[in-house]
Amino acid sequence: MTWADDGNNPMIHFNGVTKDYDNQTALRDITFSVEKGEMIFVTGPSGSGKTTLLKLIYFAEKPDRGTISIAGWETGQLKESSIPFLRRNIGIVFQDFRLLHNKNVFENVAMALRIRGAGEKEIKARVYETLKAVNLRHKADVFPRRLSGGEQQRVVISRAIVAEPTVILADEPTGNLDPDTAEGVMRTFKEINAKGTTVLIATHNRELFRNSGRRVIRLDMGNLVAEDRT
Protein backbone atom coordinates (compact mmCIF):
# COMPACT_ATOMS: atom_id res chain seq x y z
CA MET A 1 0.00 0.00 0.00
CA THR A 2 1.46 3.34 -0.96
CA TRP A 3 0.10 6.72 -0.32
CA ALA A 4 -2.34 8.21 -2.73
CA ASP A 5 -0.62 11.05 -4.48
CA ASP A 6 -3.37 13.17 -5.94
CA GLY A 7 -1.34 16.34 -5.45
CA ASN A 8 -3.95 18.26 -3.50
CA ASN A 9 -3.55 16.85 0.01
CA PRO A 10 -0.84 18.16 2.30
CA MET A 11 1.64 15.51 3.40
CA ILE A 12 0.69 15.91 7.05
CA HIS A 13 -2.37 17.66 8.36
CA PHE A 14 -3.35 18.12 12.04
CA ASN A 15 -6.81 19.50 12.74
CA GLY A 16 -7.55 20.46 16.36
CA VAL A 17 -5.52 17.58 17.76
CA THR A 18 -5.39 17.01 21.52
CA LYS A 19 -3.43 14.22 23.18
CA ASP A 20 -3.80 13.42 26.87
CA TYR A 21 -1.61 11.10 28.86
CA ASP A 22 -2.95 9.64 32.10
CA ASN A 23 -3.12 12.88 34.02
CA GLN A 24 -1.73 15.53 31.75
CA THR A 25 -2.27 17.03 28.35
CA ALA A 26 0.76 16.58 26.09
CA LEU A 27 -0.73 18.43 23.11
CA ARG A 28 -3.66 20.79 23.07
CA ASP A 29 -5.79 21.70 20.02
CA ILE A 30 -2.97 21.58 17.50
CA THR A 31 -3.66 22.56 13.89
CA PHE A 32 -0.99 22.75 11.18
CA SER A 33 -0.01 21.32 7.81
CA VAL A 34 3.18 20.12 6.20
CA GLU A 35 3.36 20.29 2.41
CA LYS A 36 4.83 17.58 0.22
CA GLY A 37 8.56 17.96 -0.19
CA GLU A 38 8.80 20.48 2.60
CA MET A 39 11.51 20.54 5.23
CA ILE A 40 10.04 21.76 8.49
CA PHE A 41 11.13 22.09 12.12
CA VAL A 42 9.17 21.52 15.32
CA THR A 43 10.79 23.20 18.28
CA GLY A 44 10.15 23.96 21.92
CA PRO A 45 11.64 23.25 25.30
CA SER A 46 11.98 19.74 26.68
CA GLY A 47 8.54 18.34 27.61
CA SER A 48 6.67 20.66 25.26
CA GLY A 49 5.22 17.76 23.22
CA LYS A 50 7.55 17.37 20.22
CA THR A 51 8.01 13.60 20.56
CA THR A 52 4.29 13.12 21.14
CA LEU A 53 3.55 15.02 17.95
CA LEU A 54 5.84 12.70 15.97
CA LYS A 55 4.34 9.60 17.61
CA LEU A 56 0.91 10.70 16.47
CA ILE A 57 2.23 10.87 12.91
CA TYR A 58 3.68 7.36 12.95
CA PHE A 59 0.63 5.80 14.64
CA ALA A 60 2.38 5.00 17.91
CA GLU A 61 -0.22 7.13 19.68
CA LYS A 62 -3.81 8.00 18.86
CA PRO A 63 -5.24 11.49 19.25
CA ASP A 64 -7.90 11.97 21.93
CA ARG A 65 -9.58 14.74 19.94
CA GLY A 66 -9.18 16.10 16.44
CA THR A 67 -8.09 14.39 13.24
CA ILE A 68 -4.75 13.68 11.61
CA SER A 69 -4.36 12.87 7.97
CA ILE A 70 -1.23 11.75 6.23
CA ALA A 71 -1.17 12.14 2.45
CA GLY A 72 -4.95 12.28 2.58
CA TRP A 73 -5.36 9.16 4.76
CA GLU A 74 -7.20 9.96 7.94
CA THR A 75 -5.46 7.96 10.62
CA GLY A 76 -8.60 7.41 12.71
CA GLN A 77 -10.20 5.51 9.79
CA LEU A 78 -7.32 3.12 9.23
CA LYS A 79 -7.58 -0.58 9.79
CA GLU A 80 -5.07 -1.97 12.27
CA SER A 81 -3.72 -4.33 9.63
CA SER A 82 -2.86 -1.54 7.19
CA ILE A 83 -0.69 0.35 9.68
CA PRO A 84 2.51 -1.63 8.91
CA PHE A 85 2.16 -0.81 5.23
CA LEU A 86 1.55 2.88 5.88
CA ARG A 87 4.50 3.02 8.26
CA ARG A 88 6.75 1.88 5.44
CA ASN A 89 6.29 5.31 3.90
CA ILE A 90 7.80 6.91 6.97
CA GLY A 91 11.45 6.80 7.97
CA ILE A 92 11.87 7.51 11.67
CA VAL A 93 14.97 8.75 13.45
CA PHE A 94 14.05 7.90 17.05
CA GLN A 95 15.18 10.12 19.89
CA ASP A 96 16.30 6.97 21.76
CA PHE A 97 17.73 5.39 18.56
CA ARG A 98 16.05 1.97 18.98
CA LEU A 99 19.05 0.16 17.53
CA LEU A 100 19.11 -3.64 17.70
CA HIS A 101 22.10 -4.31 19.91
CA ASN A 102 22.42 -7.98 19.00
CA LYS A 103 22.82 -7.12 15.34
CA ASN A 104 25.65 -5.34 13.61
CA VAL A 105 25.40 -2.04 11.76
CA PHE A 106 24.70 -3.70 8.43
CA GLU A 107 21.87 -5.80 9.84
CA ASN A 108 20.39 -2.83 11.69
CA VAL A 109 20.09 -0.84 8.51
CA ALA A 110 19.07 -3.91 6.49
CA MET A 111 16.14 -4.54 8.84
CA ALA A 112 14.17 -1.71 7.26
CA LEU A 113 14.40 -3.58 3.95
CA ARG A 114 13.93 -7.08 5.36
CA ILE A 115 10.57 -6.23 6.87
CA ARG A 116 9.58 -5.13 3.38
CA GLY A 117 10.59 -8.50 2.01
CA ALA A 118 13.45 -7.16 -0.14
CA GLY A 119 15.86 -9.64 -1.73
CA GLU A 120 19.39 -10.22 -0.46
CA LYS A 121 21.03 -8.62 -3.48
CA GLU A 122 19.00 -5.46 -3.26
CA ILE A 123 19.58 -5.29 0.49
CA LYS A 124 23.36 -5.51 0.09
CA ALA A 125 23.51 -2.86 -2.58
CA ARG A 126 21.21 -0.40 -0.85
CA VAL A 127 22.61 -0.78 2.67
CA TYR A 128 26.22 -0.30 1.59
CA GLU A 129 25.27 2.66 -0.55
CA THR A 130 23.43 4.31 2.34
CA LEU A 131 26.21 3.58 4.83
CA LYS A 132 28.67 5.14 2.43
CA ALA A 133 26.54 8.28 2.23
CA VAL A 134 26.75 8.76 6.01
CA ASN A 135 30.40 7.74 6.10
CA LEU A 136 29.92 4.46 7.96
CA ARG A 137 30.77 1.92 5.29
CA HIS A 138 33.84 0.80 7.25
CA LYS A 139 31.72 0.14 10.39
CA ALA A 140 29.27 -2.26 8.72
CA ASP A 141 30.37 -5.26 10.81
CA VAL A 142 30.53 -3.42 14.12
CA PHE A 143 27.88 -3.79 16.82
CA PRO A 144 26.12 -0.57 17.88
CA ARG A 145 27.48 -0.52 21.44
CA ARG A 146 30.97 -0.17 20.04
CA LEU A 147 30.07 3.00 18.18
CA SER A 148 30.23 6.58 19.38
CA GLY A 149 26.99 8.51 19.91
CA GLY A 150 27.44 10.32 16.61
CA GLU A 151 28.03 7.07 14.74
CA GLN A 152 24.98 5.46 16.30
CA GLN A 153 22.95 8.49 15.27
CA ARG A 154 24.11 8.05 11.68
CA VAL A 155 23.17 4.35 11.74
CA VAL A 156 19.66 5.34 12.82
CA ILE A 157 19.51 7.88 10.00
CA SER A 158 20.72 5.26 7.50
CA ARG A 159 18.00 2.88 8.62
CA ALA A 160 15.40 5.65 8.26
CA ILE A 161 16.39 6.56 4.72
CA VAL A 162 17.55 3.25 3.23
CA ALA A 163 14.09 2.30 1.97
CA GLU A 164 13.54 5.74 0.45
CA PRO A 165 10.37 6.65 2.36
CA THR A 166 8.08 9.55 1.44
CA VAL A 167 8.48 11.22 4.82
CA ILE A 168 11.37 11.40 7.27
CA LEU A 169 10.60 12.15 10.91
CA ALA A 170 13.67 12.99 12.97
CA ASP A 171 13.43 13.40 16.76
CA GLU A 172 16.36 15.40 18.15
CA PRO A 173 18.68 14.01 15.47
CA THR A 174 21.60 16.09 16.69
CA GLY A 175 20.80 15.54 20.37
CA ASN A 176 24.28 14.63 21.55
CA LEU A 177 26.46 15.39 18.61
CA ASP A 178 29.34 17.85 18.41
CA PRO A 179 28.67 20.83 16.11
CA ASP A 180 30.67 19.43 13.18
CA THR A 181 28.92 16.06 13.21
CA ALA A 182 25.58 17.80 13.67
CA GLU A 183 26.25 19.85 10.61
CA GLY A 184 27.05 16.69 8.64
CA VAL A 185 23.78 15.11 9.74
CA MET A 186 21.83 18.21 8.74
CA ARG A 187 23.50 18.16 5.35
CA THR A 188 22.29 14.61 4.86
CA PHE A 189 18.70 15.65 5.61
CA LYS A 190 18.96 18.57 3.20
CA GLU A 191 20.18 16.24 0.46
CA ILE A 192 17.30 13.83 1.05
CA ASN A 193 14.86 16.72 1.06
CA ALA A 194 16.34 18.02 -2.17
CA LYS A 195 15.36 14.69 -3.77
CA GLY A 196 11.74 15.37 -2.85
CA THR A 197 11.36 13.65 0.52
CA THR A 198 9.31 15.50 3.13
CA VAL A 199 11.44 16.04 6.24
CA LEU A 200 10.17 16.96 9.70
CA ILE A 201 12.76 17.59 12.37
CA ALA A 202 11.92 17.98 16.06
CA THR A 203 14.63 19.79 17.98
CA HIS A 204 15.15 22.09 20.90
CA ASN A 205 18.34 23.37 19.27
CA ARG A 206 17.66 26.68 17.50
CA GLU A 207 21.05 26.61 15.80
CA LEU A 208 19.74 23.89 13.46
CA PHE A 209 17.23 26.14 11.74
CA ARG A 210 18.61 29.62 12.28
CA ASN A 211 18.66 31.46 8.97
CA SER A 212 17.64 28.29 7.13
CA GLY A 213 14.57 29.92 5.59
CA ARG A 214 12.47 26.88 6.66
CA ARG A 215 9.18 26.92 8.43
CA VAL A 216 9.28 26.38 12.21
CA ILE A 217 6.45 25.26 14.50
CA ARG A 218 6.96 26.31 18.10
CA LEU A 219 5.42 24.33 20.95
CA ASP A 220 5.25 25.24 24.61
CA MET A 221 3.60 23.02 27.23
CA GLY A 222 1.56 21.31 24.55
CA ASN A 223 0.35 24.48 22.87
CA LEU A 224 1.28 25.62 19.40
CA VAL A 225 2.55 29.10 20.18
CA ALA A 226 3.97 30.22 16.86
CA GLU A 227 4.35 29.14 13.28
CA ASP A 228 6.89 31.16 11.38
CA ARG A 229 9.65 31.17 8.84
CA THR A 230 13.22 31.83 9.96
Binding site: A60, P84, R87, I90, R98, M111, I115, R116, R159
Partner: peptide, 15 residues
Protein backbone atom coordinates in the same frame (compact mmCIF):
# COMPACT_ATOMS: atom_id res chain seq x y z
CA UNK B 1 11.98 -4.21 22.69
CA UNK B 2 13.16 -5.63 19.38
CA UNK B 3 9.62 -6.50 18.32
CA UNK B 4 8.44 -2.99 19.12
CA UNK B 5 11.19 -1.65 16.86
CA UNK B 6 10.20 -4.08 14.08
CA UNK B 7 6.64 -2.81 14.33
CA UNK B 8 7.74 0.82 14.10
CA UNK B 9 9.78 -0.01 11.01
CA UNK B 10 6.60 -1.36 9.41
CA UNK B 11 6.79 -5.11 10.08
CA UNK B 12 3.54 -7.08 9.66
CA UNK B 13 2.15 -9.47 12.25
CA UNK B 14 3.22 -12.38 10.11
CA UNK B 15 6.82 -11.12 9.94
Amino acid sequence: EEIETFKLLGATKAF
